[in-house]
C-alpha cells in the first residue's frame, strides 16, 4: 500500500501543471519587456533595442495622469461603500440564523455571476430613464455594486469564527453590544476587511466593461487603455502604462494574501 501523499507527482502531471502556470505568466512578463522597446510603430519581436525614454514620455502625459487620478478616486469611494455594505451583510448572515440567507448570498453574488455587460447596460438605461447625468458618481454606483461580493466573501468566513463564544464571552464579562463590537469583533475581522478592501480596490481599479456604460465622457485608466487598444496613438506609452498597471495591481493582491494568511493563523490558534 502506498500513500498518495508521500510519493512525488507523476512526471506528466508535473509538466502539465508547470506548463499551465507558464501559460499564465509568460504573457504578463512580456509586458515588462515591451515597456523598454525602442520600436514605436509595431509589436516587433525581439525588440530592436531597449530604452528608458518612454517612462519619461509617459510621466509627462497629462491624459494618463487624469485617468489614473479618476481611477484611484473611483476605486477608493467604491471600496469604502462596498466595505460598509459587505460587512453589514456578512454580519447579518453569519450572526443569526434566519431564513432567506441563501437568497441574500445569491443576490450579493449576482452582480459578478451575470456578465458585466448586463450590469452595465441595465445601469445605463436606468440612469437615462431617471435623467441622471453621467459623472464620477455614476461610475462609483456601478463599481460599488459588484465590489460588495469581494468584501462579503472575505468577511463572512471570519465572522463565523468570531461569532458564538467570543461574543458571548465579551458580553458575559460586562461589555455591551457596542463595546463588544469595538474590542472583540472589529480587531478579529479587521484583517479580513482590509484584505476584502484591497481586492475590491483592485477589482474597481481594473474594471472596464461596466465603466464603458456608466462613464460618459470621462476616462478611468482602463477606459484610457481600451481606447489605446482600439485606436493606438503612441504604442510605447501604452506599453509603459500596462506595466505600471500590472505592478500596481500586484501590490494589493500580495497584501491581501499576507493579511488573510496571518489572520487565519491568529484566529486558528484561539481554539
Amino acid at each position: 500500500m502506498r500513500s498518495d501523499r508521500s510519493t512525488s507527482a507523476p512526471p506528466g502531471l508535473k509538466i502539465a501543471a508547470a506548463g499551465g502556470l507558464l501559460f499564465l505568466h509568460l504573457p504578463i512578463m512580456l509586458i515588462f519587456l515591451y515597456a523598454f522597446t525602442t520600436e514605436e510603430k509595431s509589436y516587433q519581436f525581439p525588440p530592436p533595442g531597449l530604452t528608458l525614454q518612454w517612462f519619461a514620455v509617459t510621466w509627462n502625459r497629462p491624459d494618463v495622469w487624469e485617468a489614473l487620478s479618476l481611477s484611484v478616486r473611483v476605486a477608493s469611494i467604491a471600496t469604502a461603500i462596498a466595505l460598509v455594505l459587505g460587512t453589514l451583510c456578512a454580519a447579518a448572515v453569519s450572526q443569526t440564523r434566519f431564513f432567506g440567507r441563501e437568497t441574500i448570498s445569491l443576490l450579493v453574488i449576482l452582480p459578478i455571476a451575470l456578465p458585466g455587460i448586463i450590469t452595465g447596460i441595465a445601469l445605463r438605461s436606468a440612469f437615462s430613464m431617471a435623467d441622471i447625468p453621467f459623472s464620477i458618481w455614476t461610475i462609483v454606483l456601478g463599481h460599488a455594486t459588484f465590489c460588495v461580493v469581494v468584501v462579503y466573501n472575505n468577511a463572512v468566513a471570519r465572522f463565523r469564527r468570531v461569532s458564538g463564544s467570543l461574543v458571548e464571552a465579551s458580553m458575559d464579562l460586562g461589555a455591551n453590544g457596542l463595546q463588544t463590537f469595538r474590542h472583540v469583533i472589529l480587531p478579529n475581522i479587521s484583517t479580513a476587511l482590509l484584505a476584502g478592501g484591497m481586492l475590491a480596490f483592485a477589482l474597481s481599479f481594473d474594471e472596464v466593461i461596466v465603466t464603458t456604460f456608466t462613464g460618459g465622457q470621462q476616462s478611468t485608466l482602463p477606459i484610457w487603455m481600451l481606447q489605446e487598444l482600439i485606436r493606438p496613438r503612441q504604442r510605447p506609452v501604452t506599453n509603459v502604462v500596462a506595466m505600471v498597471v500590472v505592478l500596481v495591481t500586484f501590490l494589493p493582491i500580495l497584501a491581501a494574501y499576507y493579511l488573510t494568511r496571518d489572520g487565519d493563523q491568529i484566529a486558528g490558534s484561539g481554539k
Partner: peptide
C-alpha cells in the same frame, strides 16, 4: 448578560485570540 454580575468559564475557554 452584560448587566448580570455573573461570569462564565466557557467550555472552549473563549479566550480572545487578539
Amino acid at each position: 448578560p452584560y448587566r448580570r454580575n455573573v461570569n462564565t468559564v466557557f467550555q472552549d475557554y473563549a479566550l480572545f485570540p487578539h
